[in-house]
């Protein structure tokens, strides 16, 4: 009788980290391991093992209690290498890892990261808040233009592929309030996005 699985389907595919490392010579130091989850990106994501520290095995290994392992890795996410090694411990139980054979390593790790995008530093306030700020300015005898634009809180970090412009730099894209420029214009068929945003903009003023 073939097995029939019942329940929710998984996104993970592969082995736990211990299942791979426990079977390798010298605990697989120097080998390349990848996660199946990150293969959805076109850029390569992989990790090279630097140090391994084993955790004790649970008394009975089940799907809810799998053996973990503490590993220090040289991590590359979407072709961007972390400047410092990363410890993988809490997520080592996930059955989503796979070992890259030595002869495929060079080919697997090849690829360029997304170029850095320059984003504008400031954005206009939303219409209602802008109105309130203007009223505040009038009440406090300050120029009306004060604080009509605010700094955009971008995500920062080693993997961010965009950054706000510095002085004497021009942004690559324009960020405005509203829907913005869609990736798939076919979804907005029959709607003039520019006009609608302009109307809103004029109303606020």
């Amino acid at each position: 009788m073939p097995y029939k699985y019942i329940g929710r389907t998984l996104d993970h595919k592969g082995k736990t980290l211990w299942e791979i490392i426990g079977n390798l010579k010298n605990c697989g130091i120097g080998r390349v391991i990848a996660r199946n989850m990150f293969e959805r990106y076109p850029e390569p994501t992989f990790m090279r093992i630097l140090e391994v520290e084993a955790h004790p095995s649970p008394e009975k290994i089940t799907m809810d209690d799998r053996r973990r392992v503490k590993v220090l890795v040289d991590y590359t996410f979407r072709a961007k290498r972390l400047p410092e090694p990363l410890i993988i411990d809490a997520i080592s139980y996930k059955a989503d890892y796979k070992l890259i054979p030595k002869d495929e390593e060079a080919n697997y790790c090849k690829g360029n990261s997304i170029p850095m995008k320059l984003m504008p530093k400031m954005i206009e306030l939303p219409p209602l808040l802008k109105e309130l700020v203007i009223r505040d300015n009038i009440a406090n005898n300050e120029p009306i233009d004060k604080d009509n634009e605010i700094e955009i809180a971008y995500k920062r970090g080693p993997f961010a592929n965009f950054r706000p412009v510095k002085e004497n730099e021009k942004p690559d894209v324009e960020v405005t309030l509203g829907v913005g420029e869609p990736i798939t214009p076919s979804l907005y068929k029959g709607i003039d996005l520019k006009q609608s945003s302009n109307v809103r903009h004029n109303k606020s003023q």
Binding site: D147, E151, A153
Partner: peptide
């Protein structure tokens, strides 16, 4: 999210 975070920070 970015816009709300910006307004929040402000």
């Amino acid at each position: 999210r970015t816009e709300v975070k910006s307004i929040n920070n402000y």
